[in-house]
Write a protein that binds this DNA or RNA. Structure first.
Lengths: 132, 132
DNA sequence: CGACTTGTACGATAGCTCTCGTAGTACGTT
DNA sequence: AACGTACTACGAGAGCTATCGTACAAGTCG
């Protein structure tokens, strides 16, 4: 019952995901999205060089449903850009938008996350989450 | 397990409030604390030059109880340092600790908050108060 | 002392969040 | 078409959070 896509873009799958526009991104939402260990981990890995990663390439200690949830929170906060590519969903940081809105913030956040991970035993990045 | 009690300051009222030690501060907690508009506002005002402010000097559009709650969240996350001075409770940013743990983060955060406030009409920050 | 100023504690409520499992959809491959 | 892969939607439970009002404590000042 929904009108099929315009088919103007021959890129394989044409099902799109809703993203907030750049001006729609709220700092509070970004911070909230990053205040969860799983999600902070995702952003940290993504910032570590990789341009795009599929959801399943992250080794999160949660179920698939929960994983989907976290990626959605990040996308809806404007932190990630997600597009379908075949059966996979590619995830990329919205670095351009974030840097434009909040210059230097993303770098500081990622740097802080890396420092903390290093301080608290880099190996067990997210495995042990007895806090929260 | 933690043994605080430096007790080196005999300032008037001697009822102390529990603060996390520097190494105890978690990035996730800081980000969570700052992901609330009221609390982000508090930090923004505090960073705007003032060294110490009492709780009541902030004009938050919430009840006193709620205000107390927000200040406590900020203190327990390690963002604020609170001490009693007479009947008043003074609030100060833990800039030294935060800068040591996460260099540049606090500045980026405050800058981002200011930018967003400016973008979205600085005047009506949280509760347009033209009466001040 | 009594009044007033500041802020806390307690209880309560509505709403959100993290987590999961199960069932299902979309896509590619055989 | 049949199958496997990758991810989603839905429903649900436990726990946290933001908010409030009322009653109370600690300190200052007339």
């Amino acid at each position: 019952m929904n009108a099929p896509a315009p088919a103007s873009v021959p890129t394989a799958g044409s099902r799109d995901l809703p993203h907030p526009a750049r001006e729609e991104i709220r700092l509070e939402s970004v911070l909230h999205a990053l205040s969860d260990p799983q999600r902070l981990q995702i952003v940290r890995e993504l910032a570590a060089g990789a341009e795009e990663l599929t959801c399943s390439q992250f080794d999160l200690p949660v179920s698939k449903s929960t994983s989907t949830h976290h990626f959605r929170v990040l996308r809806e906060a404007g932190v990630l850009r997600q597009i379908y590519r075949g059966t996979a969903k590619m995830n990329g940081l919205r670095r351009d938008d974030l840097d434009d809105l909040f210059p230097g913030l993303l770098d500081s956040l990622v740097d802080a996350a890396i420092r903390q991970a290093a301080r608290h035993g880099e190996g067990e990045t997210v495995g042990r989450d007895e806090d929260r």
